[in-house]
Write a protein that binds this DNA or RNA. Structure first.
Length: 309
RNA sequence: GGGGGACUGGUGUAUCGGUAACACGGUGGUCUCCAAAACCGCAACGCCAGGUUCGAUUCCUGGGUCCCCCG
């Protein structure tokens, strides 16, 4: 069948997004199998803010050894536990991986649940520079001292347009804006947000994997139990002892497992899944696939179909 | 069998004779390098029946349920 003029371009890369616990990895592995049957050579590129850490593999539920044997994964457990990490650093690495794979004639499958990281991998985000040395600490201390509303007023004096877009209670974003303003890097973005546009670096088939809420929550609870049973508690204590960085400690369950509070870890993981689903609803150009009661191979087939195989 | 106490959103609590609050949970949203973060919004409550009162979730009586003590 000839390709019609209105048909979307054949995607160069595949991307899988979805909440924790839906089974993204299994779908990716199944997709890789189908692609190989077509003579392709796929590689997964992880888009996950915490699976980048070496030493948190159990807690963050990275793909198992078998899964990695079935599909090579990049950008997994390569950051030392005591190092901080960020979306900016990730973007550079992800672009390099993806471009190198394409150049080598391989097929990148970007898989991940961190919305911002997925965007950073697929699009050219105009990410502002990292804070100058000490700037973050200074403003964070100021935040503790003065409170968010006071800093928000300060920001409103210096950059009214920036203050307008930030809640007066959102200390985190206020600090970020003030850092950038100090470095003379705070720029008013023009044009539509790169975060939600369909403009990507490469033609991409973006699949959003979702599941009936109740079933998803059941799976998350079970998954947390399994992670704990697999020794996440010890892993976290070891990471803690090894001086885990501030960003590494953001992993869901890190602090909870230090105190043995598994129920809180479950709850927070469910809350996180909810935010991921909200992000997915807003994503542009996403093909949503409900995988409730479906087999990974089945789902992978549907993804391939919507790519116009 | 007798005595005492409690009863307020899903849960735990607060308040008040005059349009019921807070926390957690639930849920929708925001998002341009801490994003598994941070932040914002929404829904949802007076055990039942009488009485007193202009007005009762609040006071009184009875019933119900639960808890404690005595036997």
């Amino acid at each position: 069948m000839p390709v019609s003029e209105t048909a979307p371009p054949r995607p160069a890369i595949f991307a899988l997004f979805g909440p924790t616990g839906v089974g993204k990895t299994r779908v990716a592995v199944a997709l890789a199998r189908l692609l190989r049957e077509r003579g392709e050579n796929p590689v997964a590129v992880s888009a996950d803010a915490l699976q980048v850490y070496a030493g948190l593999e159990t807690l963050t539920g990275v793909a198992s050894a078998e899964e990695r044997a079935a599909l090579e994964h990049r950008l997994l457990s390569f950051v030392p536990i005591d190092a901080t990490f960020s979306a900016g650093e990730y973007a550079v690495l992800a672009h390099a991986e993806i471009d190198a794979l394409l150049a080598a004639g391989r097929r990148p499958i970007v898989v991940g649940g961190t919305g911002l990281y997925l965007r950073a991998a697929l699009a050219d985000l105009d990410l502002r520079p990292a804070p100058a040395a000490g700037a973050r600490e200074r403003w964070t201390a100021e935040l503790d001292r003065e409170g968010a509303p006071a800093l928000h007023r300060l920001l409103a004096e210096r950059a009214p347009w920036a203050a307008e877009g930030i809640d007066p209670t959102n200390g985190r974003r206020i600090v970020r804006a003030l850092e950038l303003h100090d470095a003379d890097e705070l720029e008013q973005p023009e044009g539509p947000s790169q975060l939600w546009s369909e403009e990507l670096r490469h033609p991409t088939l973006l699949a959003g994997v979702t599941m009936e809420r109740e079933r998803l929550y059941e799976r998350i609870d079970a998954r947390v139990e399994a992670i704990v049973a697999a020794g996440a508690g010890e892993e976290v204590r070891a990471a803690h002892a090894a001086g885990a960085s501030e960003t590494a400690r953001k992993a869901l369950g890190f602090e909870d497992l230090l105190t043995g509070d598994v129920e809180t870890m479950k709850r927070r993981t469910r809350n996180y899944a909810r935010r991921q689903l909200a992000w997915m609803r807003k994503l542009a150009g996403v093909t949503v696939i409900d995988v409730t009661d479906r087999r990974p191979g089945d789902v992978a087939g549907e993804i391939l179909d919507s790519a116009g195989r």
